[in-house]
Design a protein around this nucleic acid. Structure first.
Length: 677
DNA sequence: GTTAAGGCATTTTTT
DNA sequence: ATGCCTTAAC
């Protein structure tokens, strides 16, 4: 398993690391290769600023991308300097700023954050209002459009018409059938709806907090003066708005240190701009550049292979990893007849190595390009009697029963929350059908009020048939009753009470018997989560309130599959999900053209072609550099995909690794599993 | 208001 | 092949 302390076993910093840590306060770019100890450098840098330059922890801000990275950094900083300073994700920090300055940000005090599922629901509702057909105008494409605009820092009225957005992301949906003007209109309506409902989506957290600074110069100055040092992790993954946010926040006296690895930029497809690195060097000149190229993770063989592979990319800053470790085992390569044999091979290799006692199961990771590949691998591991754990399922706070329960909490907390209203108005079913709901929506639209207020209006004016009226009355009564009952209760009592009296327990007990058990269990866990909930970061005097708990649920939705976490098990995940981790023995499977590199990165006729392929190559590079001792590569000549067998040729990436580093494993007397129907 | 049948897409994922 | 979601029929 990956060691959360990275290479903490090395007690001293190497010369390059030392140079980065002890720089005088100034702008710096740390180009940190895989396994070169970048988190360690960041943490030591913070300690150095405090201990050597006398910076107050209060004047330092460290930004990461994931909650996991933020937690780890917070933990390590506390170990080193024992101080509680401001560390968080871009979104987490933006959220906190908006909570603190909600008035200046033109927000409601009780605003709620919505996730992309809620966002999509709102968009679907708008499409209905616009009388647009979902087939002709897919809600997903609208969602993508809106998020891409916000990620670029543009409001609906700032869009440079036409097609100003098409260069950033995949433009599958930007052909003439979809009229940009319509998209902009929906974007506008969506903004209005969010404002009315006091809701804010992920992208808007950043955009709104950027605007908060932009339109409140006094506040901005206050923060610019406060932050003497800004540190950013995984800078290659920043998008436009995140860059703008950093740029506006960094004042004349702020020194900005960013850590990045352009060779590990694998999120271009969701808006990350590697170009921010060059822009940073220009905007923040002079920028001190330091390269960390010594790797503490892998054997030199693995690094050589990875170096040769990545050298095929043209868009690079340039960096070559080296290790003090011995050469190590050659990289093994296995060619299978089909995906079943491939899986069987991997399972038997693991079984064999494991039985010799050198490795635990958790020392093995099996990586793949797409999630669909995991099933065959799981079956093979199961057959071999090996425990495994698949990363990346539906996360706790994203499960439907959890989201429904939270929607009750949200509506109880804030009646204007239309997203919550729509989710629970008829769950469990209480005879408020499409007809009634549509009447409520019309009323809300007409008077520009929330769905809740619209429902009250319809009841007051007797505009509903008797049955519907009664049902709606009961629903409203239920929410108001819950609200009254939870006053003055502690958070966990509130959550427990709402779940208990919302009718959800009965509903999930009978709704789908196969899922009933796990759903009820999850609802129980939600109460436990509320019981143990304690907001991070004491500086802001956060209490375990319902509001804070709801924000936490959206912004930190937690690990995927939490079961069997403590069991020794083989780790299965996509190459993307493996970023930042390390394993003694890594398998990368499905190394075939059209799979890895993916079909869309090679076959699309677009000017983007080259960079798409380079991103795939970086992905391969990320996968390879996860390996500490052994790296095994596999591919299948034929693979069942989408119901039919397809022949594939070996991935070009295999031929980009020098032959002398590879040992080809021959088919021994292996049983070839036949394809089943 | 619930269930069956047909349509459809299907890299990667965080917040 | 499969799962998800809209639509059509009880």
């Amino acid at each position: 398993m990956s060691n959360i302390f990275g290479n903490a076993s090395h007690d001293t910093l190497n010369p390059k690391q030392t140079e980065a840590v002890t720089l005088p306060p100034s702008n710096a770019l740390i180009l940190a290769g895989a396994g070169s100890g970048k988190t360690r450098v960041l943490v030591h840098r913070i300690a150095y600023l405090i201990n050597h330059y006398g910076f107050s922890p209060y004047s330092i801000l460290a930004v990461t991308f994931t909650n996991k990275a933020a937690q780890e950094m917070r933990h390590r900083i506390e170990n080193l300097v024992g101080q509680n300073l401001w560390v968080g994700t871009f979104h987490g920090i933006a959220h906190r700023l908006l909570r603190m300055h909600w008035e200046q940000a033109h927000l409601n005090e009780n605003f709620q954050v919505i996730d992309s599922e809620d966002q999509l629901r709102l968009i679907k509702r708008l499409l209905k209002e616009f009388n647009l057909d979902e087939k002709q105008t897919p809600p997903k494409s609208i969602q993508h459009f809106i998020n891409a605009q916000k990620d670029e820092g543009r409001r609906a009225d700032q869009i440079i018409y036409p097609n100003s957005y098409s260069h950033t992301r995949s433009d599958r949906h930007s052909d003439s059938r979809f009229d940009t003007e319509t998209f902009i209109q929906i974007y506008k309506a969506y903004e209005a709806l969010c404002e009315k409902s006091h809701l804010i989506d992920f992208a808007d957290l950043l955009l709104k907090s950027y605007e908060l600074f932009k339109f409140n110069p006094d506040l901005l100055t206050q923060y610019q003066d406060r932050f003497k040092a800004l540190l950013v992790d995984e800078f290659q993954d920043t998008n436009r708005i995140q860059y703008l946010w950093l740029k506006i926040l960094a004042g004349p006296k702020t020194s900005l240190l960013v850590v990045c690895d352009d060779d590990q930029s694998i999120y271009g497809w969701r808006g990350a701009r590697v170009g921010n690195i060059a822009e940073f060097q220009k905007d923040f000149a002079p920028v001190k550049l330091i390269k960390l190229e010594q790797n503490y993770r892998s054997t030199q063989t693995i690094l050589n292979a990875a170096n040769y592979l990545i050298a095929h990319n043209t868009e690079r800053l340039g960096k070559t990893l080296f290790s003090e470790d011995k050469t190590g085992n050659p990289i093994s390569l296995f060619s299978a007849f089909n995906e079943l044999e491939e899986a069987h091979f991997i399972a038997s290799q693991i079984k064999q190595a494991h039985s010799q006692g050198t490795y635990q199961l958790q020392d093995f990771a099996v990586l793949y390009r797409s999630n669909a590949q995991s099933r065959v691998l799981e079956e093979a591991l199961l057959m071999a009697g090996l425990n495994y754990r698949v990363y990346g399922g539906v996360r706790f706070f994203e499960r439907s029963e959890i989201k429904t329960a939270l929607a009750y909490c949200r509506l109880v907390f804030l009646r204007e929350d239309d997203a919550a209203f729509e989710r629970i108005i008829n769950t469990p079913s209480r005879a408020i059908g499409e007809k009634t709901q549509s009447l409520i929506r019309d009323e809300a639209k007409l008077l520009n009020i929330s769905l809740w207020a619209a429902a009250l209006n319809l009841l007051k004016n007797n505009q509903l048939p008797g049955r519907a009226s009664l049902a709606l009355q009961n629903f409203i009564y239920l929410i108001e009753k819950l609200d009254r009952e939870i006053q003055d209760q502690a958070l966990y009592d509130q959550v427990e009470h709402i779940i208990k009296y919302s009718g959800l327990i009965d509903f999930y007990q009978t709704d789908d018997p196969s899922k009933a058990e796990s759903r009820l269990e999850n609802l129980g866990e939600l109460v436990s989560a509320a019981r143990t909930f304690m907001p991070e970061n004491s500086e802001f005097d956060l209490k375990p309130s319902l509001q804070n708990f709801l924000s936490h649920a959206v912004l930190e939705s937690g690990e995927g599959v939490e079961s069997n976490t403590n069991q020794d098990a083989v780790q299965l995940m996509t190459v993307h999900a493996s970023k930042g981790l390390e394993f003694p023995w890594v398998f990368i499977s499905g190394l075939e053209e059209d799979l890895f590199p993916s079909r869309s990165s090679t076959s699309l006729v677009s000017p983007d072609n080259q960079s798409r392929l380079e991103e795939e190559r970086r992905l391969m590079y990320v996968g390879m550099t996860r390996a500490m001792k052994n790296l095994s590569l596999t591919y299948a000549e034929s693979r069942r995909l989408y119901g039919e067998s397809i022949r594939h040729i070996p991935s070009r990436f295999l031929s980009e690794i020098p032959k002398n580093l590879i040992q080809v494993i021959r088919h021994k007397n292996m049983i070839r599993p036949a394809h089943s129907a």
